[in-house]
Design a protein around this nucleic acid. Structure first.
Length: 929
DNA sequence: AGCGCACCTGTTTTT
DNA sequence: CAGGTGCGCT
């Protein structure tokens, strides 16, 4: 059953000593190979705790862990604890265990505490930052000129975070370990680019002027300070820009700007620590400082083996952490530069493309004043995985063209790095690449989709294509949402996946209305939504609000809401009233509960939070449950996935490639350092364009390489069929440059409707697995109970509430049960029961249980309500809100599975399984080992 | 062929 | 607000 490693996969598994950079292209079995290499190390007597395996997402880490557990027959509890995680997760743990004093490494007085949380919500941090920025402006009036430049203060926050991941940190005085050198930029790099772009281009009739001079058109539309422009009256030097002017521009004095950013950065760190939070960038920063400064700690932590997956998504500080965390120099970096698409999120492709240079540079930085890494890196060994187990050779060949396609007409693409061509492991007959354009693209794509599924033109190994075999990608979310909406209207089986603006949805709007009404009895904005929803017409709504003569049932409901003990409960009550129950409501409840996690509920701040989410267009992930439908998603969210049929839609002008212009007034990049785009003139009070910044930033043109990689990622998701689509007459550069010879498609709505109605399908398939997306198997999949009888008719929401209540008590929080509260009886029972237990209480314990079924190994996931650990015995307790014991036999299977998972952890103790019926106040023993 | 100008249009998201 | 594109002038 389990596949055997082949070729270079084998080589990678067996090469464990030294530094390895592995080029693992799309679909080459990376997870598989890395997990086998891990297993190999275990066989060589290495303990899991001596191997650090870092991945990009939590999900990837869990998949890797599962893969390893599946394959290895070794101590499960050790593997569960093993450091297989994201860099962030690792740093968080490190800081919590040993890092309270880390900020002292920067000379900060504030410390990290046990209460320091990680802020993950952008809206939340922006709000904190805005609050901080107000007081900063008061305390530092001397930076007035910069406050006038900045129009969006969250840009400053982004800037600070991007400096942090590059290893540029402020100290109480000055900058940490010479980080400020980077702030002045890299003159060599600048000069190199300048010379290339400033040389006159030879044309047919002599020398044309330089590209730089061309790029400077538009200069006359800007307003430069007259003094400034006078000093550089003539920037021309024949057919090029005067190199002296360009040099002077680079060397512009920016000491005040740097001082401003220093103080802002430093004070923000103090603020965040004082308010007990860190963001993801600061987490990495403090972990790094800690490891740099505390030699004994570093030595005690360093690993025998460090393996980093998805290396193309790492940033500078993560590269340095990898070196710093190794005790031996046995380091593995696996990735594919062609799939690096998160640059805007601080990932740095150069970590791979300039691996050797960076290794050398970073190694010397780390060991500058004393030896911190007890090894010298030897030669870098390179291994390439080129066998692709996903796509047809046709698609693989075609997708390579994506890497060389021009982003604009004049661009010259130079691929100055090696592309490891992929070879299809299996030849496929059912494969094709085609393109089409249509006047209304949404309809065009849908009609093409319907034809592919309902028609007979394409097959997969002789089987018809199903909706779920197909994915539709777009560069931006808005097209994907639009398509999803249209598909719903026409009844085409399509489901959107990815981020959505949940607070703009119907449930979100109603929720906000009720919260407003709770906050202020006569909130106009609140009532108008509620009354409108209740069916009153505009005139009626107006008079009700004017007279404050609100319908009694709504007032009663409002009072009920006020009694709920936290925001989650309020939200649930509202959604139940309206019968809302979908992916949006789930997401809203989750977000609110995570954000307002205390039982103390401040309505005003919840309202503000939601308003801010709406204003900023913040999105949250929703998963659609429609397993049989075609997925619509952005290319970014499709990374790592694969589908037999892929539509790459919306390849239109201004969209794909998208023009990447960050209009930030103060920005940083590697070659220019820190610069301000505008300058404020004290003499006349005007804001001018900054000439120096304008000139220098013209040197590097727009870079389309990440857009090309995005195109490459999209194409390499396809196994058999690839369709490319654009709006007729609006075809974008990529679509044009690919030379596709598109078919002109004239969609008709009637055709879509009739085709999808024509043939009710029966799914019958042979020899082909279904969705390949990673699916966790829940313990609940072994029991077969619907929610109606699950909680004895009291509903899913009731069960969740009681479980949340139990978790609070078990984790030692103060709780009170009021007289008229819902579920009072159950709660009192639970409270008394839990308080009667002596010993250690571990609520909500995650378990992983490997299990053989039909000779295949599965890993089940589950969450144990309560683990009661005493010296000789461990009780696995599951709370049930059922009013009778009819489901008990089903529950027994569930609990025995839990107990199996637990027994691996506590091999020397007796394990017993129990059900506690909260209504019946009865503890039933179901299991004994 | 080479250059300049007016017009058009608008992004991705994990920890 | 900045960049690409296409058109029109020289």
């Amino acid at each position: 059953m389990s596949p055997k490693p082949k070729g270079n996969q084998k080589k990678l598994i067996n090469s464990t000593e030294g530094i390895y950079l592995v080029d693992a292209g799309a679909g080459t079995g990376k997870t598989f190979t890395v997990s086998r290499r891990y297993a190999k190390l275990l066989k060589k007597e290495t303990e899991p705790e001596d191997i650090l395996l870092a991945t990009f997402t939590e999900n990837a880490a869990e998949n890797m862990r599962e893969e390893i557990i599946n394959y290895c027959n070794c101590d499960l509890s050790k593997l569960r604890e093993a450091p297989i995680s994201t860099f962030h997760g690792f740093c968080q743990q490190l800081l919590m265990k040993k890092g309270f004093k880390a900020p002292a490494g920067l000379g900060l007085e504030e410390a990290i505490t046990a209460n320091t949380r990680t802020i993950s919500n952008r809206v939340q941090e922006n709000r904190e930052f805005a609050n901080f920025y107000d007081s900063f402006q008061e305390n530092y009036p001397e930076y007035g000129q910069f406050y006038r430049i900045v129009y969006e203060n969250t840009n400053l926050l982004q800037l600070i975070k991007s400096l942090a991941v590059k290893g540029i940190f402020p100290k109480q005085s000055g900058w940490y370990r010479g980080g400020d050198k980077l702030l002045s930029g890299n003159y060599h790099e600048y000069l190199e680019k300048l010379e290339r772009v400033n040389a006159p281009v030879p044309g047919k009739r002599g020398k044309k002027q330089s590209k730089l001079l061309n790029r400077l058109t538009g200069m006359k539309n800007r307003t430069f300070d007259s003094e400034e422009i006078k000093r550089r009256q003539d920037i021309r030097d024949g057919k090029q820009v005067d190199p002296g002017v360009m040099k002077e521009a680079f060397n512009q004095d920016r000491s005040e700007l740097i001082a401003f950013i220093h103080d802002l950065y430093l004070e923000y760190l103090n603020y965040a620590l004082g308010r007990n939070y860190l963001n993801f960038s600061f987490q990495l920063m403090f972990a790094y400082v800690l490891l740099m400064e505390d030699d004994r700690l570093r030595e005690s932590i360093q690993f025998d083996y460090v393996m980093v997956d998805e290396f193309q998504d790492t940033n500078e500080i993560q590269f340095k952490l990898s070196l710093l965390l190794s005790s031996t120099g046995n380091i593995l970096a696996v990735g594919d530069w062609k799939q690096s698409i998160f640059g805007f999120q601080y990932a740095s492709v150069e970590n791979i493309t300039e691996f050797e240079d960076r290794l050398d540079e970073f190694y010397h930085q780390l060991n500058k004043d004393r030896q911190r890494t007890p090894y010298t890196p030897g030669e870098v060994n390179r291994i390439s995985l080129r066998r692709n187990y996903r796509s047809s050779q046709e698609i693989l060949n075609f997708s390579e063209r994506a890497l060389e396609v021009r982003g604009k007409k004049e661009e010259e693409v130079s691929l100055n790095r090696e592309v490891v061509s992929l070879e299809a492991a299996k030849s496929k007959v059912d494969t094709d690449i085609s393109a089409f354009v249509s006047e209304s693209e949404v309809e065009g794509v849908l009609s093409r989709l319907v034809r592919v599924v309902e028609g007979d033109e394409a097959k997969l190994n002789g089987n018809p294509i199903e909706y779920k075999d197909v994915a539709i990608f777009s560069r931006n979310r808005s097209f994907a949402r639009e398509l999803d909406k249209k598909a719903r209207e026409l009844g085409v089986s399509v489901a959107y996946e990815g981020g959505a603006e949940i607070f703009k949805s119907d449930p979100g709007v109603i929720l906000l209305a009720w919260l407003r009404v709770m906050e202020r009895r006569n909130s106009k904005r609140g009532w108008s939504v509620i009354l409108d929803e209740a069916g009153y017409n505009i005139a009626e709504v107006k008079s009700i609000i004017d007279e404050e003569d609100f319908p009694p049932d709504t007032l009663r409901f409002r009072d009920q809401l006020k009694e709920a003990y936290d925001i989650g409960a309020v939200t649930r009550k509202i959604f139940i009233r309206y019968g809302f129950d979908n992916t949006f409501t789930d997401a809203i409840i989750e977000v609110l509960q995570n954000t307002f996690d205390s039982s103390y509920m401040n309505l005003a701040s919840v309202v503000q939070f939601i308003e801010e989410n709406i204003r900023q267009g913040e999105t949250y992930d929703i998963d659609s449950q429609k397993e049989e439908a075609t997925t619509v998603q952005t290319i970014h969210s499709a990374k790592g996935l694969e589908y037999p049929v892929v539509f790459l839609a919306n390849m239109n002008q201004h969209t794909f490639p998208s023009t990447n212009s960050d209009g930030k007034r103060i920005f940083y990049n590697d070659s220019l350092g820190l610069r301000a785009r505008k300058s404020y003139s004290d003499s006349d009070g005007f804001l001018y364009d900054d000439l120096e910044t304008y000139l220098t930033s013209r040197v590097s043109g727009v870079d389309y390489s990440e857009e090309r990689r995005l195109l490459y990622v999209a194409m390499t998701r396809a196994e058999n069929y690839l369709f490319l689509s654009a709006e007729k007459g609006k075809e974008g550069r990529f679509f044009k440059e690919l030379d596709l010879d598109p078919v002109d498609l004239e969609p008709s709505i009637d055709e879509i409707k009739s085709r999808r109605a024509a043939r009710p399908r029966k799914t019958l398939r042979v020899g082909r697995p279904g969705s390949k997306r990673p699916k966790k198997k829940s313990v609940h999949s072994v029991i077969d109970i619907t929610f109606e009888n699950h909680s004895g008719g009291r509903g899913k929401e009731f069960g969740t509430m009681i479980h949340a209540f139990a978790e609070k008590i078990a984790s030692g929080k103060e709780v009170t049960v009021s007289q008229e509260e819902r579920g009072k009886e159950d709660k009192v029972n639970v409270k008394n029961f839990i308080q009667s237990l002596s010993g250690k209480l571990l609520p909500e314990q995650e378990v992983l249980i490997p299990k053989y079924e039909n000779e295949t190994k599965h890993v089940y996931h589950g969450s144990i309500d309560l683990l009661h650990v005493s010296d000789d015995r461990v009780r696995v307790i599951d709370f049930k809100t059922d009013e009778d014991r009819t489901n008990e036999s089903q529950y027994k299977r569930q609990i025995s599975l839990y107990a199996e998972g637990v027994s691996a952890e506590y091999p020397d103790r007796e394990i017993t399984g129990h059900i506690y019926y909260t209504k019946l106040n009865k503890l039933v023993t179901t299991f004994k080992i």
